[in-house]
Design a protein around this nucleic acid. Structure first.
Lengths: 277, 277
DNA sequence: CGAGGGTTTGAGTCGCATCAATATCTGTGG
DNA sequence: CCACAGATATTGATGCGACTCAAACCCTCG
């Protein structure tokens, strides 16, 4: 029964969460230019703008291609119009760290402003359509339009808050809770983009997910299997069906067997002593 | 011998890394206003500004006082002029997470821009002198001065990169490596501020350090003791002396005993097979 | 069809958390 | 000035969760 659900997704020639009607169409239909209003809509910021002087160029990337690299001089911000990417940092010890998976409506490249060169690299996981936003021009437009300027600050602040949430996740949650959060995050993101929030295909490997969440790929795989086993989700390779989003939202650890019993004991004991006193 | 070094710090009536000559003087000598140039200098941004129209107000806080709280409407950014603080986020499950320890020259409150209310709270760990920066006014000044505006973006980007580095730390490093990094970070920060980079007093508890690094307070304590035992540092309560900064910089794990041996075996085996081929 | 990357699953181990006891520091009131 | 309470720090014993290593399987693509 689980298998039948999944086969619906996987066997269908049209993949879920792919905007273009047919697979290879993305390149021919590519939109080459956007005006400021379209850019703002994509970023989900409500700036009343009428300035159509500048047209922002689109650029298409194939899966595997790099949009920017570490150390490259900074002059562009990027906005995802379609497709999926990953942003990676490499620390002084050579460790790779996945920092995020930019998708439709996300801005990336902000880290480059500070030192005038990117401190991360961003790679396309699928074929992508990305809008190029020359930083000088963007901030220049902001200077003539206070509303737009506020929106730019807001987008940067939003990124900051997202990273803070990630720090909190890595600093305090168990492996299961991290994976659960990741699934909830994806679900909400897919919903926002107008796709199904309950069934979708992962665009990244277990390795990349694990790296992102501070776990090994085996732990990610095992956790998916465990969620599958208790009916929270169905997994088959990259295909995911979410059955119980609410449980995923509140999950801290898996059915802790005797831990739960112990907690119950404690609570009971507390109740007794309170009653005795 | 180790003890004697530490007693130098701890017994001295004047504490290290305290700018004001005498303990209680901070309140009387408090500087009440700063102009834009002074603010920029503090933030270590080189903006050629001559606008002295606006005077930024200072405000003094005692240890334990809250500068802003979660959910409070956002209208201010803050810059630390002196003292030490901590910034904390509380996630939906009620977990506290220390996000940083703002000190002289750091800006905080940036997270509030996005939703127009702070998503974090910041508490004084010591008595502090903080500059209040009304965001509307600050960004307004930026709009008339491109150089300043670029500097504002740069400060925000700097914060973002710092958080990214923190994610990388939490995601990939062992407990020892995290603690070592933390010490290096403090050392560099104290040096920047003009204090000794090799001996200083911690302003935060083991609990706060552990929370910040995604560890328990016991692990932090044990790791300090271990570093002490192998001569990298001397610790006594909050007093720290750094003996070998370079080792702290490159440390991944503690004297790995047989792990190191195992790695050596592997390398040897690889060398042999390569030679055989 | 074979090669190679990606995924699943198992067995064993280790790092860090947890629980607990003691020691030390700080401040406060008698 | 001392005594005491509460917060902070150290250290030990123990257990669990996640990593490591390894083998098999699955999917894709040339």
């Amino acid at each position: 029964m689980l298998t039948s659900q999944l086969s619906d997704i996987r066997s269908g020639s049209m993949s879920l969460a792919t905007p273009s009607p047919a697979g290879a169409a993305w390149q021919r239909q590519a939109k080459l230019w956007s005006n400021l209003k379209e850019v703002c809509d994509l970023l989900r910021i409500q700036a009343r703008v009428q300035n159509d002087d500048y047209q922002f160029q689109h650029m298409q990337f194939k899966a595997g291609q790099r949009i920017h690299t570490i150390g490259q001089p900074f002059d562009m911000l990027y906005i995802v119009n379609s497709g999926f990417l990953k942003t990676v940092m490499i620390d002084e010890l050579g460790n790779e760290q996945v920092l995020g998976f930019p998708m439709k409506g996300d801005m990336f490249g902000i880290d480059g402003i500070h030192r005038k060169q990117y401190s991360t690299e961003t790679v396309a996981l699928t074929n992508c359509d990305v809008i190029l936003v020359p930083f000088k021009i963007f901030s220049g437009l902001g200077r003539t339009n206070a509303e737009l300027e506020a929106a730019i600050y807001a987008v940067m602040s939003r990124e900051l808050v997202r990273e803070q949430a990630m720090i909190s996740t890595l600093g305090s949650l168990s492996a299961e809770a991290r994976v659960a959060r990741f699934l909830v995050f994806l679900s909400e993101r897919f919903s926002d983009m107008g796709y199904s929030g309950t069934q979708f295909n992962l665009r990244m490997t277990r390795q990349e997910i694990g790296n992102y969440l501070g776990l090994t790929l085996e732990t990610v795989s095992r956790t998916f299997s465990a969620f599958n086993a208790i009916g929270l989700i169905s997994v088959d390779q990259r295909a995911i069906v979410i059955h119980d989003l609410q449980s995923l939202r509140t999950l801290r650890r898996l059915p802790p067997s005797r831990v739960r019993a112990k907690a119950a004991d404690k609570k009971r004991a507390a109740g007794e002593s309170a009653a005795a006193a």
